[in-house]
Amino acid sequence: MKRSGLVLIVSILLVYIFLIGPLVIIGFSGFNESEFLDFPPKVYSFRWFFRIFESDMFVSAFQTSLLISVLGATGALLVGLPAAYSLSRTRAKWRRSVLSLFMSPVIVPGVVLGFALLKHVVIALDIEVWTGMVMGHMLIMLPYVIRVIVSSLSNVPIEIEEAAVSLGCSNTHAFLIVVLPNIRSGILAACLLAFITSLNDGPVTIFLTGPGVTTLPIQMLSYVEYYFDPTVSALSVLLMLLTVAIMIVIESTMGLSFFTKK
C-alpha cells in the first residue's frame, strides 16, 4: 500500500503541475518587458497591460462580448425560466424529450451549429450580424440556464407553493413571492455560467462575426495568429482575474461541488 500511495502522490503532483504550469508561464510572460514570451522574464513591466487599453481592438471587442452576452442571457433567461419551472414541476411524458431538446445545443458540435445558423438563418433570412450573434449566443446559453435552474428548483419543495395557493395566492403570485426568492442564487449562478459560456465561445461565434462585430475570443484568436507578443498574455492575466471573481460568486451561490455532479 505504501508504494502505491507514493505513486498516487507523485502522479497527482504531476497532473497538477500540468494543469497550473501553463497558466503560470503565461501569467509571468504578461509582465515581461521584452517582446518575446520568454520564461521567466528578465525584466518585469506593465507595458503590455497598457498596450491592451491603448489600441481600440481589444476594448471594443470586449464591449461587444459583454453586450452580446448580456442580451443573450436576458433572452435565455426569459425563455428558460418558465421552461425550467415547468420541467421541474410536471410529470408529463414529454418531460424527458423536451429536456434533451434543451440540452442539444451542448451536444451538437459548435462549428456545426455556427455553420447551420449562418447558412440557414442569418443568410437565408437576411438577418443583421448583431441579431444573428445574439440569437446564436442565446442558443448556447439556454442549456446552462435551464440545467442550473431546474436543479435549483428541485430543492424548493412543491408544498410551500401549494400552501401559498391554498391560502389564496394565484399561481403567478405564488411563483413570484414564494418560489422566485428561493431560487435567487440559482438564477445568479445560471447567469454567470451562461455569461462565461458566451464570453469564451469560439466555434459558434466565428461563423457569425461580421464587419465591425467581433467578440473578444475571436479578436484574440486572429491576433495571436499574426502577432506573437505578450499582449495576449497580459489579456490572459485579466481574464484569469475575471474567472476567479466569477468562481468566487458561483462558490458562494451554489457551491463548486456542482461541477463534480452531472
Binding site: 497527482i12 497538477y16 494543469l19 497550473i20 501553463p22 497558466l23 508561464i25 503565461i26 510572460s29 518575446f36 514570451l37 520568454d38 520564461f39 462565461i196 464570453l199 469564451n200 469560439g202 473578444l216 475570443p217 484574440m220 484568436l221 495571436v224 506573437f228 495576449v232 498574455s233 489579456l235 490572459s236 481574464l239 484569469m240 474567472t243 476567479v244 466569477i246 468562481m247 462558490e251 463548486l256 461541488s257 461541477f259 463534480t260
Partner: peptide, 28 residues
C-alpha cells in the same frame, strides 16, 4: 484541488491554447 481543476475549465480556450503556443513554440 477541485477549485484548481475547475478553474481552467472556466477560462477561455483561446487563453489555454495560447499558453501551449508559448510553451511549444520555436523559442518556447
Amino acid at each position: 484541488l477541485i477549485v484548481i481543476a475547475v478553474f481552467p475549465l472556466l477560462l477561455s480556450p483561446v487563453v489555454r491554447s495560447f499558453a501551449w503556443m508559448a510553451i511549444l513554440g520555436k523559442n518556447g
